[in-house]
Design a protein around this nucleic acid. Structure first.
Lengths: 108, 108
DNA sequence: GTGCTATTTGGCTATTTTGCCAAATAACAA
DNA sequence: TTGTTATTTGGCAAAATAGCCAAATAGCAC
């Protein structure tokens, strides 16, 4: 089976979503939002980067459809729109564990 | 809670693995390997890119610990080392569906 | 209206990623 | 040995990403 244009677009759409998760700061944000909604300034305080940087990371996640936002007063509150994204963590942990085991085996 | 160095490294390690999945070609490879092992030339034929390009994508996945390889004769056969990675697809599909629903709602 | 705070956007540079070509390497056959 | 095939590696240019600063925007209080 060759990858035609339609199939290619399907994988591109999927990759866009996964790519949005592929950054340590954005991963942290998702993890934090799994505990409840957070405003941008709270996240900035935790992350310690410029607020414009945090805002752009949030916009990447929002663009992908992973988070949603709601403005209340001066603050914008972000929330996790698709909790199933948390399932990623479990498998990622498995991969890391397997890598450690493999590294150990390679030494001995 | 501020993000200290140790916490940062944990998220970086996780992000490296997810980032390895965040490319349409690599996503296709993982999907294909879920059906069984494939050699590089088979994947190249399906993907239609230069074989060096395919080889480099495979090396990114291998580096992350997602795939393994085995040389048999002239060919190198790649296999999926952590099948749980396939769980990603289901959630990604959910995100895409939610996005479509949201877009529809925005129009009307 | 002015002033203050929270957030986003534009613009810039530095870094990373991608994909091709060419060259190197590895396994096998003659 | 030479030749052939499969794959990886090095190098390069184009494209994408990241993070900062400064400016713009939005909501609220006065």
């Amino acid at each position: 089976m060759t990858v035609n244009n339609q199939v290619k677009q399907k994988y591109e759409a999927r990759a866009r979503i996964i790519k949005a998760m592929g950054h340590p700061t954005r991963l942290f944000i998702v993890d934090e939002l799994s505990k409840g909604e957070r405003c941008v300034c709270e996240l900035r305080d935790m992350i310690g980067a410029d607020i414009s940087t945090v805002s752009k990371h949030l916009s990447v996640l929002k663009q992908a459809g992973i988070v949603g936002d709601e403005k209340r007063g001066l603050q914008v509150w972000y929330n996790l729109r698709v909790p199933c994204i948390l399932n990623f963590f479990g498998c990622v942990e498995d991969v890391l564990k397997a890598n450690v085991a493999q590294a150990r085996k390679a030494i001995t």
